[in-house]
Nucleic acid binder design. Structure first.
Length: 538
DNA sequence: TTAGGGTTAG
């Protein structure tokens, strides 16, 4: 199999070491051992500083690992320890507060972030520029630029290059390039010198808009000003060039890197490979793996994930399985998501035996399958004509069936006209307290209509309204009823007390009738009848 | 503190 050449070339790599293979350099920020002081014992203040530093390092590591609750707990412990420390119960310093507020804000827990910030102010801890920048980033992400401005003007903290850069990045993300330029002018007026982090978001905003020429002009301007674009800026440009199918230009940009004083990184190659994969150039993407290895760059979990997806989407399942099987040798700790990706592709091709084999392999490796894994297996068994096996699986121990599991089976039953089986399954869902979702209702309603049980389908829709109106569900029902000329049932939809149609519903109804040919003068009265019923509800 | 990869089921 020629296509495995690149992966095979990796086999002689040294066996995995115990160290982390992550591409970040976070490992370098581990707490340094306390510096041996001169013979004098540390003062109370020194002890305090060390305590805060250690707690701060721990909180940052926990935040990085996504364990936010633990960050909050560690901060609470710091407060308690500090209060008992015999130095008057001083609150944690601004750096610790910043770490807490940032972790909360990054995790989308904005309310708590603001509360922590207020608590800091109430404790008499003065915010610094970073505290302000953290909140500005939070506001900018929610497009609350008025709040960001207010903070800058009222906080009394002098904005720094980070403040302006954060604001520019937020504005650019919201597509407000003109306003971002305004902030840039403002900082120049204030004699604050922009950094590469200030310009790069603007380059990115141009790239996102497909304005590559302007992005390149700005990069040239950066060079002229002595603020050289770095690997991140070039990565942004390369991504845009890939999206635009300009792979020759990518090659040129890479070739010029040595003279332009920047060095492509693993991220650069990840972006390039992903770009090639998205355009169906799996072969070229795999060849890049050898190029990056040749440059001494180690592939990361991202790299493998990109290549795996690439192989799956280009129907090179054998190569994908090959990659999975050798993942440990490649120093890649493929997890359940990687297995699910490959299994999902096998499912599309109806290869349930292959899925079974991968399931065995992953369990042997100690990788625990999740509900998605089982759902993929169940669907593949249905597709492969083994529905009784699929059915028995949902009752097996160690498998938490969810609404998706039931939807897969319901779809299969309705599709094959097995209404009794479908009804039985709906009862099981009720017994097990698994709430139907939009997809469930769509499947049931479509299935019933196909069997010409329009009355039952309408009743099911009215029941679905208890959990809110879904336009998708209504579209399916309305379409079926209109084409079957079931005017009485349509009238029933708009008869219920809970359903007040809005303009989207009117729009959908009129469009559906017209598409089905009811806008002819002889049949138009039917649509009129329904519109009258709808207007009565309004 | 300030910028850059991808993400699996109906």
């Amino acid at each position: 199999m020629a296509s495995s050449a690149s992966a095979a070339a990796l086999l002689p790599l040294p066996s995995p070491s115990c160290s982390s293979s992550e591409d970040s350099d976070d490992g370098k920020h581990l707490p340094s051992p306390p510096a041996p002081e001169a013979n004098t014992p540390p003062t109370q203040q020194q002890k305090r500083r060390r305590l805060e530093r250690d707690y701060n390092v721990a909180m940052k590591a926990l935040a990085l690992a996504g364990d936010l609750d633990e960050v909050v707990a560690v901060f609470a412990e710091l407060k308690r320890t500090a209060a008992d420390g015999g130095d008057g119960g001083a609150p944690p310093n601004v750096l610790c507060y910043n770490t807490l507020v940032n972790a909360l804000a990054e995790a989308g827990r904005e309310g708590e972030a603001l509360k922590a910030f207020d608590e800091m102010l109430a404790s008499g801890v003065a915010p610094n520029a970073s505290s302000q920048n953290i909140l500005i980033k939070m506001h900018a992400r929610r497009s609350e630029f008025d709040l960001a401005w207010e903070l800058i003007h009222k906080s009394g903290v002098e904005p720094d290059v980070g403040t302006y850069s954060t604001l520019i990045a937020g504005l650019c993300r919201a597509g407000k390039i003109v306003e971002a330029w305004g902030v840039l002018d403002w900082m120049l007026e204030k004699n604050c010198r922009p950094m590469v982090q200030t310009y790069t978001p603007i380059v990115q905003a141009y790239c996102r808009d497909g304005r590559i020429v302007e992005a390149k002009l700005l990069m040239a301007e950066m060079e002229r000003l002595g603020c050289l674009p770095n690997v991140v800026t070039y990565n942004v440009l390369i991504r845009a060039l890939c999206d635009d199918d300009k792979f020759d230009e990518v090659e040129q940009v890479l070739m010029e890197s040595s003279t332009k004083d920047w060095k492509p990184s693993t991220v650069t190659y990840n972006i390039y490979m992903n770009g090639l994969c998205k355009k169906g150039k799996a072969k070229e993407a795999l060849e890049l793996l050898d190029v990056m290895l040749g440059e001494g760059l180690e592939p990361t979990a991202y790299t493998w994930s990109i290549l795996l997806n690439c192989l799956c989407h280009s129907s090179r399942l054998l190569d994908a399985i090959y990659l999975l099987e050798r993942s440990t040798e490649l120093k890649w700790y493929a997890g359940v998501v990687a297995y699910n990706t490959v299994m999902s592709s096998l499912c599309e091709m109806g290869k349930w035996r292959g899925i079974m084999k991968l399931l065995t392999d992953m369990i042997k490796k100690g990788i625990e399958p999740n509900t998605r894994t089982f759902n993929i297996l169940i669907r593949s068994l249905c597709v492969g004509g083994k529905s009784s096996l699929a059915k028995s699986l949902i009752h097996s121990q160690g498998f938490a069936a969810n609404v998706v599991t039931y939807n897969i089976l319901l779809h299969w039953f309705y599709y094959h006209g097995k209404l009794t089986e479908a009804n039985r399954l709906i009862s099981v869902m009720e017994e097990k307290n698994i709430a139907p979702d939009e997809v469930t209702y769509t499947i049931i309603i479509d299935g019933l209509c196909r069997e010409r049980k329009f009355d039952a389908a309408t009743a099911c829709f009215l029941k679905s309204l208890t959990s809110g109106l879904s336009m998708d569900v209504l579209t399916v029902l309305l379409n079926r009823l209109v084409y079957a000329d079931k005017i009485w049932e349509i009238n029933r939809i708009f008869d219920g007390k809970d359903f007040v149609p809005d303009h989207h519903v009117f729009d959908l109804t009129i469009r559906t009738f017209c598409r089905a040919g009811y806008c002819h003068y002889r049949t138009f009265y039917k649509l009129n009848l329904i519109l009258d019923a709808m207007l009565k509800r309004k």
